[in-house]
Amino acid sequence: MRARRLALALTAVAALTLGACSGGDDGAGSGGSDGATAGGGSGEKIRIGIKFDQPGLGYQDGSEYTGFDVDVATYVAGKLGYEPDQIEWVQAPSAQRETMLQNGQVDMIFATYSITDKRKEVVAFAGPYFVAGQDLLVAADDDSISGPEDLEGKNLCSVTGSTSAQRIKDEYAAGTNLLEQPGYGECVTALVAGTVDAVTTDDIILAGLASLPANEGKVKVVGNPFSEEKYGVGLPKDNDVCADVNSAIEAMIEDGSWQKALDDNVGASGYEPNDSLNPPTVEACA
């Protein structure tokens, strides 16, 4: 009888010891992947949502994932205890991001995800890790366009379903002629061909497109943003990792890794972010 009790006690002690080494309660949010926790752990994975089709930000090429969002996510995951091979990259289309967090399909999202009050009703945000603004992409030798007001009577391209081009027509230049394309790649092709005079969306997205080898030296970002978009890290509403993510973003900014990631991914375009907003000031978790 005493031997049986001793065996049970030893089993309980072993279980407690293993629990103490597994990262405790520093979880990566509710509905995480295979028990993903801040602090990582042997064999654990963290699922991170990114865009797969935004060069310079989140881009998939076979089994390789590149871009500023990818680099920031990798750095943050590292601070949470995850090695790069423990990251599972998941495509996060804009319209599905809230649902993916609510359903536990991902632990966090880095996907040009603007922080808004409406979104904060259903998900949480860490960050911001970048502040973007709507801007214009024009031909490299075009000095006639310095802002949206200069598009009167000119041709402007944006993607189907986007409100950014219509905003210019409604608020800045009513005589702008709008051309919609399925993707921004097609818009840039039209710009290089001279079919349109400008392309519009967030400045860093434009910079990523301009940094592609095929576009280098042919196009440029005007550099006069006329909106403010705070890119945050999307998290489940009920999470206990927001403060750790914020600390990681601050560390990335302080040690120079943030600037290096920006330069590596969009520097070839000549783009320089608004230095009054970037690097951003990380906000307190709400």
Rank of each mutant, 00 (worst) to 15 (best):
L151E: 10
L235Y: 04
V72G: 02
T160N: 06
T281R: 13
G35W: 05
N155M: 08
P148L: 09
L137F: 08
D69M: 02
G194K: 01
A7N: 05
T74Y: 01
P182F: 00
T99V: 06
A268G: 11
S211W: 12
R2C: 00
G43Y: 04
V131M: 07
E121Y: 00
G232F: 01
D275F: 03
L80I: 05
V90R: 04
V72L: 12
V159T: 15
D275H: 12
D107F: 07
A126P: 06
A214H: 03
P279D: 09
E254F: 01
G223W: 12
V106T: 10
V138F: 13
T99G: 05
L137Q: 12
T11I: 15
T189Y: 00
G32K: 01
K230G: 00
D170L: 04
P182L: 06
Y184T: 06
G223V: 13
N177Q: 15
E83L: 06
R4S: 11
S144K: 05
I115C: 08
D170N: 14
Y231A: 02
G183I: 04
P236V: 05
V106E: 07
V233T: 04
D143H: 14
R4D: 12
E98C: 00
G208N: 03
D135W: 07
L179K: 14
G40Q: 04
Y75K: 11
P236R: 02
K218N: 11
P182Q: 09
G153W: 15
E88C: 08
E121R: 12
L277R: 14
A38V: 13
V241M: 09
V90F: 03
Q259L: 11
V131Q: 10
N155G: 06
S247I: 02
S114Y: 02
L277H: 09
G67M: 01
K45V: 02
T200G: 03
R119Q: 01
G62N: 11
I50Y: 04
I249Q: 04
L191P: 13
A124E: 09
T116R: 03
D71P: 05
T74E: 05
G127S: 05
S114L: 01
S22D: 15
N177R: 14
F226D: 07
D150G: 11
G19R: 14
V233A: 08
